[in-house]
Simulated assay, not measured.
Amino acid sequence: MGNRRLYDIVNFLIPRVSLWLNVDPLAEALPDRSPYEYTLSNPIRFTDPTGMYPNGPGDENIRTKDIEEVKLVGKRESWFTRNIVRPIKNFFKGEPNLSSQQGAYGQSGAYTNGKDKYGVAGLVLGYNYSGSIMSTKSNIKVLNGEIESGMGNGKLNLAADLKVKVAAMAAESKNILGDENWNVFADAKGDFLYAEGELTNGLYSGERERYGIILGGGGKAGALSGEITSGYTLAGIRFGDTVGGCIECAEASAQGAFYYDNKKGNLVIRGYGAFGGEFGGRVGKFIEIPVLKFIKLTKDIVKIKLN
């Protein structure tokens, strides 16, 4: 390179001409950015100590074992995920999360609810409480539009996982009495002047940290609907049933699922169906088995016996 000085800032830079000699190794994971950009052209906010992927405040540096996963997501990300799902998630990034509020709250405008649910409402009124033996999360939304999706996070991206809903008024309440391993629970939700479409079909390969198969989809619309999901947890095994119905409605949907939820360490088996004309009914059943806890418990028992 003669007397030209090189700066090894993970990707070689010739400062005199502001020229990068090689592209970001994971440029395909950010298809909307230039492959020659460093730290998204914002070195004040972002760093890239490994030369693999930009990191923001609080982010962990990407590890070597993550590189192939990031490459795979970038290469196999669908047009729909890249141009629809990701822009929606970016738009709602940083908005208030209803599930993390404490006590009574109220707001209007954009919100998130959990990790994969995003919405806009004219008004949201809610109350959250979390105690040692009881917790509740309840809210009412007026003029509400909501989208829920786990697409774009899988290794293979072979699962359609999308739900869209609009309602003049929507209410939901999630309640648990007991601890994590021994409890009873009851979740209720209702909608007034609503329309909803859902497509959950394919092979989970990491979407929402799930691995397995899910088959289903359908649509609903009507004047009034409601459903209750209730059950109990015994030694960590969760059993639940869903019942519900609608008035002045039209709906047809079904779902069957068998997958491992890595976030909770549970094996989930679930079935659900909803059919109706002027009046409709909904039924469902599920069981969640804490596989990870049982494996750990077995290892601990074996270890005790060996000692």
Rank of each mutant, 00 (worst) to 15 (best):
residue 240 G to Y: 02
residue 199 L to K: 01
residue 199 L to G: 03
residue 152 G to R: 01
residue 240 G to H: 03
residue 144 N to H: 14
residue 198 E to S: 06
residue 223 A to I: 10
residue 206 G to S: 13
residue 148 E to I: 13
residue 198 E to F: 03
residue 242 T to S: 06
residue 213 I to T: 00
residue 192 F to I: 10
residue 165 K to R: 13
residue 236 G to M: 01
residue 237 I to W: 06
residue 170 A to F: 14
residue 244 G to N: 04
residue 196 E to W: 06
residue 216 G to F: 00
residue 137 K to S: 08
residue 187 D to R: 03
residue 160 A to T: 13
residue 164 V to A: 09
residue 243 V to I: 09
residue 171 A to P: 04
residue 156 L to Y: 15
residue 175 N to E: 14
residue 156 L to E: 14
residue 202 G to R: 00
residue 150 G to E: 04
residue 145 G to M: 02
residue 178 G to L: 01
residue 140 I to R: 05
residue 200 T to A: 08
residue 186 A to Q: 01
residue 137 K to T: 07
residue 170 A to W: 07
residue 170 A to S: 11
residue 248 E to F: 15
residue 212 G to Q: 01
residue 151 M to S: 02
residue 159 A to I: 11
residue 192 F to A: 13
residue 236 G to W: 01
residue 244 G to D: 04
residue 137 K to N: 11
residue 231 G to A: 03
residue 218 G to R: 02
residue 136 T to D: 09
residue 170 A to C: 11
residue 238 R to I: 06
residue 189 K to S: 15
residue 226 G to H: 07
residue 156 L to M: 12
residue 179 D to E: 03
residue 213 I to C: 00
residue 235 A to N: 15
residue 169 M to T: 14
residue 184 V to K: 07
residue 182 W to I: 15
residue 193 L to E: 12
residue 241 D to E: 10
residue 210 R to L: 02
residue 206 G to W: 08
residue 223 A to R: 12
residue 140 I to H: 05
residue 225 S to R: 08
residue 180 E to I: 04
residue 150 G to H: 05
residue 181 N to M: 13
residue 170 A to L: 11
residue 162 L to C: 10
residue 174 K to Q: 13
residue 240 G to E: 06
residue 161 D to S: 05
residue 171 A to M: 13
residue 144 N to G: 12
residue 247 I to M: 14
residue 202 G to H: 00
residue 182 W to N: 14
residue 159 A to M: 14
residue 153 N to D: 15
residue 178 G to F: 02
residue 173 S to Y: 02
residue 206 G to P: 10
residue 159 A to Y: 08
residue 151 M to L: 02
residue 186 A to V: 02
residue 212 G to A: 00
residue 211 Y to A: 04
residue 167 A to N: 07
residue 171 A to I: 10
residue 137 K to I: 05
residue 225 S to G: 01
residue 245 G to R: 09
residue 207 E to K: 05
residue 220 K to G: 07
residue 199 L to E: 02
residue 148 E to K: 11
residue 165 K to V: 11
residue 173 S to G: 05
residue 144 N to C: 12
residue 151 M to W: 08
residue 141 K to T: 09
residue 184 V to P: 06
residue 162 L to D: 08
residue 234 L to D: 15
residue 143 L to C: 14
residue 169 M to D: 12
